[in-house]
Each structure stands twice: as structure tokens, then as C-alpha cells.
Design a protein around this nucleic acid. Structure first.
Lengths: 149, 149
DNA sequence: ACAAGTATGCACCTTTTGGTAAGTACCTGA
DNA sequence: TCAGGTACTTACCAAAAGGTGCATACTTGT
């Protein structure tokens, strides 16, 4: 029992009304292998293009492969397919193959995918609101990499 | 028949009832280098331990290095330090060095960090609610990796 | 004196991730 | 017939991310 110096209840010195209520973040670690809900979510959306894919599908509804490819700029076939397959395997995306002779396939969100996309919204908002900060910080970091290399 | 490559606004044939309202996800791509707000956010929280770190700091308030290390289980010194440094550089975390002689340092969230942790809450919730699904799916994926080599 | 704890730094190595470029099978239009 | 478009697949590589373990400088407890 190490006596912690500063510990409980966090002295609300400068606490703005916007401190995250601990109860909100505290997820019950129900299943083995997951630290918390956040952890579980991150496993699903981790992958360079996944959030963007969810984003486009949430906006555009069912989307053909080629169309998606043109939307998510700079993605290669390999990556797009791979991430789509994983999202599909994870039950976030539904693939529809029309079995037509010049291949025709489209992708859409499952209900689960829709709910996930919904959970992404605040991140989206946060990013939009703080983009200036983030950009500034990353510019510095890159300048640093450039010369300190 | 018709080779419809022209796809203006997606024929509302199968319009899913519960699509995320596009307006909610549609972020204005203000700054160069970012596709959207979501993109910006992900750059900040990407890193195996960052969300967890934010999570613990949001819950526990200022936390000493060693304490954090024991909380975020399985993290190595190198990784924890590295991610903390990045979060600090990104302005999400504040490092306080007490300059004491057996080193004493603690970490806490900046206001920006607090708001970011807040944006993480829905992901946390989503993960908690759908953890069973996620676990099931990942179990399958791993079984697959195991035998399909 | 010596182990242990404190908060890091650094070198080295493996794993994971992502990228490039090519190929497939089929069709359409010039 | 040949380029171009569809939706992928595969092999090979480079870069990034992450892990292990040792080193530091200083103190306290035994």
C-alpha cells in the first residue's frame, strides 16, 4: 500500500466542466483478451484505411469497388481489398457480388458497421475542431524528423 | 444489361434505414494533409498504447511513471516512454518533473487531452456493447491464421 | 557494499504493415 | 485486334512499429 501522493478524486483545481466523467470511460473488462471496450473497438478499426472506408460507406451507401477506390485516394488495390476483406470478416461491411460478367461488386455497411461509424463521429468532430492544433504539432514533428534524422 | 458506370447519387433502391446521417460524418477538409477530422484524430491516437494511456490518465488524474507502467500492463519502458513523449509533443499530456533526487515525474492530461479522451468515450461504449461480437470474430480470425498458416 | 527502485536512453532485432508491380479472366468499344 | 475497364490475386520488398535487454545516476534499505 504505497501511499500515493496525489491520488483520488483529482483536485478539481482547474477542472473545466469538461473533464471526462470517469464513469463514462470506465469500461467493464468483460471478455478475456480485451482490456476494455476501447481496446475492442480499436482492434476493429485499426488499419490505415479502415476508418476512411467506413467513412465513405457511411456517407455514400452501397459503393462499387472501383468507386471506393477512387474515393479513398492513394489506396492501392491490395490494401483496399485487404481492408475490405477484414471489415467484411469482422461483420462491419457487406459485400455484394452481382455475378455479372464484367465483374460487379459493391460494398455497404452492416447495421453493426453503421453503429461503429456512428461511434466514430465524435472523433471526427474532435479532429475537425482541433485540426489546426494537430496540423501545427505534426508540422513540427516532421521538421524535427527531417533535420534530427 | 446497361453498363451503368454513371452513378450520380446512388439509386435509393435499397436505402438502408439507419445510415449515419451524412451531415454528421461529413467533415470539412480544411487543412492540407488531412482527409478529414477523423484522419487528424487518428494520427494523434495511433500507437499501440496511446488510447490506453489516455484512458488511464483520464481516469486516474496525474499519474507517476511507474504507476502508469504498472497500470498499462505488458507495456515496456521503451514503448511507454515513447508514446508518452509523443502524446506530450502533441499537447495531449503534460509531463511534470519534480527534479527530485530519486527521479519523480508524473503525467496528466492537458485540456486538449481531456477533450480527446472525451471523444474516445463512444468508441469505448461501442466496444463494450459489441465486445461479444468482436471477440467471436477475432477468435475465428485467429483460428484461421493458426491452421491456414 | 549491494540489491532494488526511480525515470529514462540506446542498440539491436523481429514482426507487422504497407507499397509496387505484375498477372488473371472476362467484356466492350474503336 | 488491341487498349481499357472490371474486381481482384500474388510475389516480393521496404519501412515502420514494437520488443528485449543493458546502461545510467542517484538514493534508500539491509
Amino acid at each position: 500500500m504505497s501511499s500515493d501522493r496525489t491520488d483520488p478524486t483529482v483536485p478539481a483545481s482547474t477542472t473545466p466542466p469538461s473533464t471526462v466523467p470517469p464513469s463514462t470511460l470506465a469500461c467493464t473488462p468483460t471478455l478475456p483478451g480485451f482490456t476494455c471496450g476501447l481496446d475492442a473497438t480499436l482492434r476493429v478499426i485499426s488499419g490505415k484505411w479502415k476508418p476512411l472506408i467506413l467513412y465513405f460507406l457511411a456517407q455514400g451507401g452501397p459503393t462499387r469497388y472501383g468507386e471506393l477506390r477512387r474515393s479513398v485516394r492513394d489506396v492501392s488495390d491490395k490494401m483496399l481489398i485487404q481492408q475490405l476483406k477484414e471489415l467484411e470478416a469482422d461483420g462491419m461491411v457487406k459485400r455484394t457480388d452481382y455475378k455479372e460478367v464484367p465483374p460487379r461488386v459493391d460494398y455497404s455497411l452492416t447495421p453493426l458497421g453503421v453503429s461503429l461509424a456512428g461511434a466514430l463521429v465524435p472523433l471526427c468532430t474532435w479532429g475537425t475542431e482541433n485540426m489546426a492544433e494537430v496540423a501545427r504539432v505534426f508540422a513540427q514533428r516532421e521538421a524535427w524528423n527531417g533535420r534530427a534524422r
